[in-house]
C-alpha cells in the first residue's frame, strides 16, 4: 500500500513553499508536538506515564518551556525573513468565497474517498484556508497565554486566570487541526502532492494545475508569464 505518492523529479515541478516557510512549518511541527506531549501531562490529570518519558514532571516542564521558546523563535524568524510570504498568505485567506464554501461543503465526501468534483481553488483551498486561520490563531493564543502563565507574578491575577481556559481551548483546537492536517497533508490519497510541496518545496506542475487552478494560473500561467516578460 502506498502511503504518499512517489516523488517524481523527472516531471515538470513548480515551487509551492519557499525555504523559510518550510523551516517554520517543520520547526513548529517538532516543537508543537513536544509542547503537546509535555503539556498533556497537566491537561490529562495525572498522566504519569507521559511525564516519565521526559524524566518526571520537572523534566516535562523544562522540555515544555524549551520547546515553547523554540517555537516562538521560529515564529519570529518567519515574521522577519518571510514577511512578504505572510502578507500574501493572509491575502489569500481573505479571498475566502463561494468556491471555498462549496469546497468545504463537499469535503466530507472527498475526506471519505468518494469521487467529488471540486470548484477551482486559489493557492489554499477552502479547508486549507480554515486551517490557516484556526491553527495560527490558536498558536498565537497559546504563546501569549503561555508566557503569562509562566510569569504570573508580573500580570494581574484576573488575566492569569483567563489564560488557563484559553491555553486549554487553543491547545485542543490546534491539536484537532494538527491531527487533521497531519493526515490530510500526507496519507490522504486525495491530497496527492501536498506532502512534497512542504517537504521538498515543489509540486508537480500538472497537480498544481488540477488542484489549485486559480493559483497556478496567477503564478505560473500565461498571465503571470506575460507580466514578467
Amino acid at each position: 500500500m502506498q502511503l504518499v505518492p512517489e516523488y517524481r523529479a523527472d516531471v515538470k515541478r513548480v515551487e509551492r513553499f519557499n525555504f523559510v516557510a518550510r523551516m517554520t512549518h517543520w520547526g513548529h511541527t517538532v516543537t508543537f508536538i513536544l509542547c503537546l506531549l509535555t503539556g498533556l501531562v497537566l491537561f490529562l490529570d495525572s498522566a504519569d506515564w507521559l511525564a516519565v518519558i521526559f524524566g518526571g514532571f520537572s523534566g516535562a516542564g523544562l522540555v515544555h518551556r524549551i520547546a515553547a521558546v523554540t517555537l516562538t523563535i521560529f515564529l519570529v524568524i518567519f515574521v522577519i525573513f518571510d514577511f512578504k510570504g505572510i502578507i500574501s498568505w493572509v491575502k489569500d485567506l481573505l479571498r475566502f468565497g463561494k468556491n471555498d464554501i462549496i469546497f468545504v461543503m463537499k469535503f466530507p465526501f472527498e475526506f471519505l474517498g468518494f469521487p467529488v468534483k471540486m470548484p477551482p481553488q486559489t493557492r489554499f483551498n477552502g479547508g486549507e484556508k480554515g486551517n490557516s486561520m484556526l491553527t495560527p490563531t490558536s498558536v498565537i493564543l497559546l504563546v501569549l497565554s503561555g508566557y503569562i502563565m509562566w510569569f504570573p507574578a508580573i500580570f494581574p491575577a484576573g488575566l492569569v486566570r483567563v489564560c488557563y481556559p484559553i491555553h486549554d481551548i487553543a491547545m485542543v483546537l490546534a491539536t484537532f487541526m494538527v491531527c487533521m492536517h497531519g493526515y490530510l497533508g500526507s496519507f490522504h490519497p486525495g491530497s496527492g502532492e501536498s506532502f512534497w510541496g512542504m517537504w521538498k518545496g515543489t509540486v508537480r506542475d500538472d497537480w498544481a494545475q488540477h488542484h489549485h487552478p486559480i493559483w497556478y494560473e496567477e503564478t505560473y500561467g500565461d498571465k503571470a508569464n506575460e507580466k514578467s516578460e
Binding site: P5, P115, V116, M118, P189, G192, D206, W207, Q209, H210
Partner: peptide, 9 residues
C-alpha cells in the same frame, strides 16, 4: 472507483 490519477483526482 479506480486509483486516483497521478496528477489529480
Amino acid at each position: 472507483h479506480g486509483e486516483h490519477a497521478e496528477g489529480g483526482h
